[in-house]
């Protein structure tokens, strides 16, 4: 059996906040299915963060993660995860794979951090013979990524940006309206993104009674059904996203409850983040070369300090 040491074999920066890591793990690449996630630990002192698998390549034996630098850990990963370095741990694939149904016409919606993980689903549906319409939402054209990848596997692509700098101007929900207007025979909508966006999607399809699956991303510790931190209300039941999900019927998920529970550690996380960025600034004063050695451009650094004022990561996601 091939064991992995979680080596990072490729990295791509889509924007100042979004980056892609390809981690070598042949066994996981073989096992992964659309909709599953991993839990990553950056170092021995790190926290366990759940990340949806954005892609997997059995031939190369790699798992692709697309990450938004929004908190302490994801920003530290942005600084430290270079090709050739290693993660301390990565476990998965976790969760029940998304059922790629026999739907004939499917809309795959991805917003913000959900654009990457919706890709394997779109590809899965296409391979199952469905007519796939992808709707992708970004804040502006600088943040757009993987447009070509989606075009290659989807029959239609609706690109939405908040400022109209690429594709149509508007929220993801406007994109859904366009899709619904153009097609009366949509069997299923799959939406991944920030909770506010998924909530808006579920609301947009509720009247037409179109089956809408969402992939929730609550706070987790172990990811194996042991801590119960990731519990979500689905209809009148309480489910654990890590082992009962992460996909649930969007019309039944209590998004307000989900968003409230996501804010549990906001205060302490902000403190940890401030402390960490403070120590980074000090490094910068002591010796800027240290950061250059990490490969951070001047532009990158400037953008990062702006980011410190970023409020809740989910607030400025499209569709919200």
């Amino acid at each position: 059996m091939e064991t992995s040491n979680f080596e990072i074999v490729a990295r791509e920066d889509f924007s100042d906040v979004t980056y892609l890591l390809e981690v070598r793990h042949p066994l996981m690449a073989k096992a992964a299915k659309p909709g599953q996630f991993v839990i990553v630990m950056l170092n021995e002192h790190g926290e366990r963060i759940p990340l949806t698998i954005a892609d997997f390549d059995q031939k190369k034996g790699t798992i692709t993660l697309v990450i938004q630098a929004v908190g302490k850990t994801t920003k530290q990963m942005q600084q430290e995860c270079r090709v050739g370095t290693r993660l301390y741990g990565m476990v998965g694939p976790m969760g029940i794979p998304s059922p790629v149904s026999h739907a004939k016409k499917v809309v795959c919606v991805g917003g913000g951090l959900g654009v990457a993980p919706i890709f394997p689903q779109a590809r899965g549906f296409k391979e199952a013979g469905a007519y796939v319409i992808a709707i992708l939402g970004f804040r502006n054209k600088d943040l757009v990524f993987w447009e070509d990848k989606f075009r290659a596997c989807c029959d239609e692509l609706i690109l939405c940006t908040n400022d109209g700098s690429a594709g149509m101007k508007g929220m993801i929900t406007d994109g859904i309206k366009v899709a619904l207007a153009g097609h009366s025979d949509i069997d299923e909508v799959v939406a991944i993104g920030p909770p506010v966006m998924m909530k808006a999607c579920a609301d947009a399809t509720r009247a037409a009674k179109i089956k809408t699956m969402v992939s929730v991303n609550p706070i987790m510790v172990d990811g194996t059904g042991m801590c119960g931190g990731c519990r979500v209300k689905v209809g009148d039941q309480v489910k654990f996203a890590c082992v009962d999900g992460p996909d649930f019927d969007g019309h039944l998920v209590d998004f307000d409850d989900l968003m409230l529970r996501l804010s549990r550690y906001t205060k302490v996380e902000k403190e940890a983040h401030e402390r960490w960025s403070e120590s980074c600034r000090m490094t910068k004063q002591v010796g800027p070369s240290a950061l250059d050695a990490l490969g951070l451009s001047k532009k990158g650094r400037a953008a990062q300090s702006e980011l410190l004022e970023l409020p809740d990561p989910f607030e400025d996601a499209p569709g919200g």
Binding site: E47, T73, G228, R261, V268, A272
Partner: peptide, 30 residues
Amino acid sequence: DSLNGVLSANEMLTRCNLMRGRDFPNFDTP
């Protein structure tokens, strides 16, 4: 049950014992 501040003993103990949340922020787990 789902209010913030309600958690399982498993979560509380795992954060403290395995993830060393008690040494936050030296360890990252809150």
